[in-house]
């Protein structure tokens, strides 16, 4: 007998994987972007199931609020292509499917042979606040200060680079 959480997990993951399949197969790019939003929502629900509420919120704000909307803008700015009547998929797609299935099979094989796939997560202690721990970990010099700063500089450099690349010099 499955517990309610397991039923929720199976439903959400089935919807997410179905939406992801639509993202990579739909011909209309605007619809693909909307399916992407659904898939990202499914992942946000999985973050809630994993008791990482901050990441569910960040997923909705950053991925759906910024990245997916940016993609819809890019699709609309390149509109003639979005309505391209020809095939939207390479002629070598069977090879791509074989590679993707092979990698999926390999990963599942490794997971099956691994003895640490426990069935229940350890209980969180009372008063455990992952969000404040995460905040402290990101700015402590003996924890993850350097990776955090490197990520910040990467983001800054990428945004400046994006402005320069997309600049219309004419």
């Amino acid at each position: 007998m499955m517990s309610p959480l397991q039923v929720i997990f199976i439903l959400v993951s089935a919807i997410t994987l179905g939406a992801a399949l639509m993202v990579v197969t739909t011909r209309n790019m605007v619809r693909a972007a909307l399916w992407l939003v659904l898939a990202l929502f499914g992942v946000a629900i999985l973050f809630v199931l994993l008791e990482a509420g901050f990441f569910a919120v960040a997923q909705v704000i950053i991925y759906i609020g910024a990245i997916a909307i940016l993609m819809i803008f890019a699709i609309m700015l390149t509109r003639r292509i979005a309505q391209d009547p020809g095939p939207q998929i390479n002629s070598t797609w069977p090879l791509a499917a074989v590679i993707a299935l092979a990698i999926f099979g390999l990963i599942v094989l490794f997971i099956q042979g691994w003895d640490k796939t426990m069935s229940t997560p350890p209980a969180l202690p009372d008063g455990f606040a992952p969000l404040s721990d995460l905040g402290v970990a990101l700015v402590s010099a003996n924890q993850y200060l350097i990776p955090f700063e490197v990520a910040s500089i990467l983001l800054l450099a990428a945004l400046i680079g994006a402005i320069i690349i997309a600049w219309d010099r004419k």
């Binding site: 994987l17 790019m29 992942v43 199931l49 939207q88 797609w93 791509a96 990963i107």
Partner: peptide, 29 residues
């Protein structure tokens, strides 16, 4: 509760679907 392996298999499936999209799609977006 949900076993860890369910999450791992879900992530493997999502990764493979994304990989298929990267390898097979024509449109850069």
């Amino acid at each position: 509760m949900i076993p860890l392996s369910w999450y791992l298999i879900f992530a493997a499936a999502l990764f493979s679907i994304g990989l298929f999209g990267v390898l097979s799609r024509k449109n850069a977006v």
